[in-house]
């Protein structure tokens, strides 16, 4: 599974980047979301994955009796997911606003701040 996941992560990164290179603002944001999904999975994978042993201490004991999934990456990903949710919701609203003021979804028409003046 690790091998498959690694390829999947690569695919997520690649597709995210490809979407970012398009001219549509919506695609750009989708690309960013794909990218951060990729990064989250990467943390998950590189923190080493374990099947079927959630890091929850059993009812009757004080600590773990045998190997269990590393909870640290999970905590990190949780934080990262929530943070990216914050950013994504802001980004989505930014699309809305951009469409209202610039009247387009085309990134190539948002160049005025880089022009010589």
């Amino acid at each position: 599974m690790e091998f498959l996941l690694a390829i999947l992560i690569g695919l997520l990164y690649a597709s995210g980047l490809y979407m970012m290179l398009r001219r549509s603002l919506v695609k750009l944001i989708i690309g960013l979301i794909l990218l951060s999904n990729g990064a989250n999975l990467l943390i998950f994978l590189l923190g080493r994955i374990t099947k079927g042993k959630p890091p929850i201490i059993p009812e009757e004991s004080y600590n773990f009796l045998d190997a269990y999934a590393d909870p640290v990456p999970q905590a990190l990903i949780l934080t990262a997911i929530v943070i990216s949710f914050g950013l994504q919701s802001f980004a989505i609203v930014l699309i809305k606003r951009a469409y209202k003021v610039v009247k387009t979804d085309d990134l190539d028409q948002m160049n005025s701040t880089d022009e010589f003046s």
């Binding site: 690694a6 992560i9 990164y13 690649a14 597709s15 980047l17 490809y18 994978l45």
Partner: peptide, 13 residues
């Protein structure tokens, strides 16, 4: 993009 993705995959492995 694919090169970039492949790079990440290799790195992960």
């Amino acid at each position: 993009s694919l090169v970039f993705g492949a790079l990440i995959t290799v790195l992960a492995l």
